[in-house]
Nucleic acid binder design. Structure first.
Length: 637
RNA sequence: GCCGACGUAGCUCAAUUGGCAGAGCAACGGAUUUGUAAUCCGUAGGUUCGGGGUUCGAUUCCCCGCGUCGGCUCCA
């Protein structure tokens, strides 16, 4: 008898030999039907895996993240199978499950067309319906290489050559199709019921642009049709929120060839929003004890030589320009300037910490193919700041920065965070002692906030450990905006110091941090997060007063003036059009409040407010709506 | 940068096998004075991304360039 411990702590005893599927069956028929794989002593295995010792076991169903990944991985094999049937000349390479589905890279004589995708998907359906068993086979290294080489699958042979010795080489067979794979996989192709091929794209073998470009087919798969259609709906929803589309519709910004790719033009409505964002930022920083700097957009190339950017950041920098026979560099970062300000006088330990912030516009060279709306640009403004402090102040400064970060993100409607702490990489500057001390300070600051975090060991930059904060938007997508980065390098390179209590010169610690990251990108995220329906405090136009006929123009004008005088962004629409026409137009502009003015309103010194959901609040005195709007504006809801 | 798809009026899109480049919205002019998501009539609007080629004839086919979009880390 073998004894299997289930996740809930209970046990099942079964006579050997037994496989994972049999254990699932012993637990329940429903579970057995849903099972796609098992986890035995922490390791994922196929259902057919035979067990001949006691073990901790878990049955994996597609409802779990692991199960879903297996379904997707198996679907990628299904796709490769279909491709090999339709295009026998195609070589298979790799085909993993990824965040939203899966892909498989092929080497084929020509690119796949959208029509090919339709055919491949149809063939996948057919193979799934054949319900072929998916079975695992172990092979000797040489045998496996010969097997693939005999079939012209050179990529697979290359992969096998790289598998470390001692590791078993496993292949999975479904019908005529056999693929090198670690597994595990679903037990049969019939288990794959809901998938869709999304697009073809070029992708380099091993992601290296020196290698051959392969044809990558992306697809997605779910345990059932319902999951698939929910996912497709989400994609549609994301498309509706696309900031490039909304940016045009709401006339917020543009990016035009005449100026250049990746260079953003902020239109009046977008600029209003940016000013609101910046004003909020300034006020929060003032309250948190920051000073503000303004520094130039370019500098003598020597500055970038001293900072080291010329060595390790060159690829992202624009070429220098020549001024009076000297080379000048448009800035990719703000930090060297802040250091120059620091260095402009002798600093005492009593001066520290110094917290200096700047909305600094920087220019970075990005390859043309990666430019993407506001998300990936060549000129952008960082909400940058540098804190110079003593070692002993690291922890409290980091804690304060975290505070300000979360407070800022919450203000903009984000309240789900994911925090990442990245520690010392192999190659690094600074002593082990300072790394250890600093990393501990960062960890403590996070714990002090009672925040959960993940540690990325070795993921830090060579010049210091860092904390990244990711936010989750309204449709569940994650974005990294904030970053808090310690720097042991620049203070050294610029040889900055402060005089300590002991009268001796010490090296300060430098902290770089950005909360929103790039204002352009953050703005894009805000647009998508709110789908253009901005909260009142951010909306470029907060209310429009609109008339029924021109007999009400005077009153409407007066209302507009009164609201504007109170600091609200209010327009009046006196045009000779039907109300329904005007309402439609402003509703499409996603204006939060429409204030309708007609005979009755005029007579009573009132307006009839209509909220963004189309709800008519009825007659309301102008002072009352003013109060209400101011309230809403102040609450930032 | 590389692979693929795409590029038509300010915007969203049409235009058989190559045969006079169109519609709606927006703009402009006029009529309409209107009560909660589109009043009616009219006018104007184009180097079909740029350049070259094939052809009697090119938005359409071919080549080059530019731009946009989707990708190019997620290791069998």
């Amino acid at each position: 008898m073998l004894r299997f411990t289930l996740p809930d702590g209970s046990c099942k005893e079964l006579p050997a030999p037994v496989n994972v599927a049999a254990i699932a069956a012993a637990i329940g028929t429903g579970l057995a039907r849903a099972a796609v794989a098992g986890r035995v002593n922490g390791e994922l295995v196929d259902l057919e895996t035979r067990l001949d010792a006691d073990a901790a076991i878990e049955i994996i169903t597609p409802a779990t993240p692991d199960g879903l990944e297996i379904v997707r991985h198996s679907t990628s094999h299904l796709m490769a199978h279909a491709v090999k049937e339709l295009f026998p000349g195609a070589q298979v390479t790799i085909g993993p499950a990824v965040a939203d589905g899966f892909y498989y890279d092929f080497d084929y004589e020509r690119p796949f067309t959208p029509e090919d995708l339709v055919a491949i998907e149809a063939r996948m359906e057919e193979i799934a319906n054949r319900d072929l068993p998916v079975t695992r086979h172990l092979m000797e290294r040489q045998e496996a290489m010969d097997w693939f080489m005999a079939r012209g699958e050179r990529y697979k042979a290359e992969i096998i050559a790289e598998i470390p010795g001692g590791q078993p080489i496993s292949l999975y067979r479904q019908g005529e199709f056999m693929d090198l794979c670690r597994g595990p996989h679903v037990p049969s192709t019939g288990r794959l019921k809901a998938f869709k091929l999304m697009r073809v794209a070029g992708a380099y073998w091993r992601g290296d642009s020196r290698n051959k470009m392969l044809q990558r087919i992306y697809g997605t798969a779910f345990p059932d049709k319902k999951g698939l259609s929910a996912h497709l709906t989400l994609l549609e929803e994301a498309a509706k929120r696309d900031h490039r589309k909304l940016g045009k519709e709401l006339d917020l910004f543009s990016i035009q060839d005449d100026a250049g790719g990746g260079l953003v033009l902020w239109h009046p409505m977008g600029a209003r929003m940016r000013q609101t964002i910046e004003e909020q930022w300034r006020q929060a920083h003032r309250a948190a004890g920051y000073e503000f700097l303004f520094t130039p957009h370019m500098a003598n190339l020597d500055l970038w030589r001293t900072s080291g950017h010329l060595d390790f950041y060159r690829e992202s920098m624009f070429n220098p320009m020549t001024v009076d026979e000297q080379s000048y560099q448009i800035r990719p970062m703000n930090c060297p300037f802040h250091i120059l300000v620091y260095r402009s006088q002798i600093r005492s330990h009593r001066d520290l910490p110094l917290r200096w912030a700047e909305l600094g516009t920087v220019y970075r060279y990005e390859m043309s193919g990666v430019l993407h709306g506001l998300f990936r640009v060549r000129g952008f403004t960082q909400d940058d700041a540098h804190i110079f402090c003593r070692e002993s102040q690291i922890e409290s400064e980091i804690a304060a920065i975290l505070d300000l970060t979360l407070q800022t993100l919450r203000t903009f409607g984000f309240d789900r965070f994911e925090i990442n702490l990245s520690t010392r990489p192999e190659k690094a500057v600074g002593s082990d002692a300072i790394w250890e001390k600093a990393t501990l300070a960062l960890r403590n600051a996070i714990l002090h906030h009672g925040l959960e975090y993940r540690e990325d060991a070795g993921g830090g930059a060579f010049y210091g450990p860092k904390i990244d904060v990711k936010i989750t938007d309204a449709i569940g997508r994650k974005w990294q905006c904030s970053t808090i980065q310690l720097d042991f390098n620049l203070p050294e390179r610029f040889d900055i110091g402060y005089i300590g209590e002991d009268g001796v010169r010490h090296r300060p610690i430098m902290i770089h941090r950005a909360l929103m990251g790039s204002l352009e990108r953050f703005f894009g995220i805000l647009i998508e997060h709110y789908a253009g329906h901005f909260p009142l405090w951010l909306a470029p136009v907060q209310a429009v007063v609109l008339t029924i006929t021109e007999a009400h123009n005077d009153w409407a004008t007066e209302v507009g003036q009164k609201l504007r005088a109170a600091g609200l962004r209010v327009e009046t629409d006196l045009r000779n059009h039907k109300v329904s026409y005007k309402i439609r137009e402003h509703a499409m502009r996603k204006i939060p409040w429409l204030l309708i003015v007609g005979e009755r309103e005029q007579a009573e010194g009132a307006v009839s407010p209509r909220d963004r959901h189309g709800k008519d609040l009825g007659l309301m005195h102008v002072d009352e709506i003013l109060h209400r709007l101011l309230q809403e504006n102040a609450n930032r809801t």
